[in-house]
Simulated scan of single mutants.
Amino acid sequence: MNEEELREGLRSEMASTIPPPPLSTQATLGAARRAHFRRRTLGAVLGSAAVVLAVTGFAAVATPGGLVYQAGSGPLATPDSSGDSKQPWPTGPDGRPQEDRTARAGSKYDQGLRLLNEVVSVVPAGYTMPEDPPNQPAEQRTLRTHQAQFEDRVNGVDMWSYLSSVAVAQGESAGRVIVEVHDAGNQLPTDPCALARSFWGMEGDCKVETVGAAQVGVVARPGNDDRLDQWSAYRHPDGVVVFVAQGAKLDVNRPALKQLPFSVQQLAALAVDKRFHLK
């Protein structure tokens, strides 16, 4: 076989290959929420055995048990050299597309900061809320963190989520309270327990709690995923989704809380709380 015949054979083989189906952005995002945020705030829980891998501009965290959490959709981009038109990142306050999913200034960033302040306001008496050093860079903070993230574009409308995490302590013991809010128009499940089980791709035993006229899904016993201990989920009538979570363990350097800050019913009520109903 000469060189020309070899090239022709390779072209024929490539032409006959069926390309793989496109990735489902929503399914991938639903399977794992905010790998970057989890790396900052919960990565310490995994200890020295955790492995952080760079994947398409995001991160995958492999736990000692072999579970992998990954933000799977690659970065959106401007039209490339081949002429393929791809959606750009949302425009920041400087009039230019963002560098990645995270807003670092502007109204979306402010919403994330507002959510952090609201989370701090609901921590019950008897718990202290340690803070990061005042000069700590934002990407290194782990005790009080907030993030506004572009999730998807649905019918031409940008969908955002906002996540805040606050460390709570009693003496030397420390845990965490987390609230995540998704814009109306999101593609998350509508059933209360299906919604609760979609949080960060975690599973667990769920039951529906009634708060006034609201039906709230609450996972009080997680499955094999031990990142958090309990969480609640509620979809407001306008479509805004709120998750409220608590964990007894902050990191490997401090003992876990002996008692979680909220009861199951309180956790359900917080998911309905108007303070977290961001618009």
Rank of each mutant, 00 (worst) to 15 (best):
M1F: 07
N2P: 09
N2M: 08
R7F: 12
G9T: 05
L10H: 06
L10F: 12
L10V: 12
E13P: 03
M14N: 02
T17H: 11
I18L: 13
P19N: 09
P19Y: 13
P22Y: 12
L23G: 15
S24E: 06
T25M: 10
T25R: 13
Q26A: 09
L29S: 11
A31D: 10
A32F: 01
A35V: 06
A35G: 15
F37I: 15
L46M: 07
A49L: 09
V51F: 07
V52D: 04
L53I: 12
A54N: 15
V55T: 08
G57M: 04
G57T: 02
F58T: 14
A59F: 10
A59P: 00
A62G: 07
L67P: 00
V68G: 15
S73L: 10
G74L: 11
T78S: 11
D80Q: 04
Q87L: 09
P88F: 10
G92F: 06
D94S: 12
R96I: 01
P97I: 01
Q98D: 07
E99N: 13
D100V: 02
R104M: 11
A105P: 01
A105T: 06
G106I: 07
G106T: 09
K108G: 07
Y109K: 09
D110I: 00
N117M: 10
V119N: 03
V119L: 09
V120A: 14
G126Q: 06
Y127R: 05
E131A: 15
D132N: 08
P133W: 11
P134S: 15
N135S: 15
Q136T: 06
A138G: 05
Q140E: 14
L143Y: 14
R144I: 04
H146Q: 15
Q147A: 12
Q147M: 11
A148V: 01
A148I: 04
F150P: 07
F150A: 12
F150S: 07
E151G: 10
N155R: 13
G156V: 13
W160L: 06
Y162C: 14
L163E: 15
S165P: 00
S165I: 11
A169N: 07
E172F: 06
G175V: 02
R176P: 00
R176L: 10
A184V: 02
G185C: 04
G185N: 09
G185A: 11
L188Y: 13
L188S: 08
P189Q: 11
L195M: 01
S198N: 07
S198R: 04
G201A: 05
K207I: 00
E209A: 11
T210I: 03
V211A: 06
V211T: 03
G212T: 03
G212K: 06
G217N: 05
R221W: 00
P222S: 03
N224G: 15
D225M: 08
R227H: 07
W231Q: 01
S232A: 13
P237I: 01
F243V: 00
A245T: 00
A245I: 04
Q246W: 02
Q246C: 05
Q246K: 02
A248M: 03
K249D: 04
N253Q: 14
A256Y: 04
P261N: 04
Q265I: 01
Q265T: 08
L267F: 03
A268H: 06
L270I: 00
L270H: 02
V272Y: 01
D273Q: 05
K274G: 07
K274I: 10
R275D: 07
R275L: 00
F276R: 10
K279P: 05
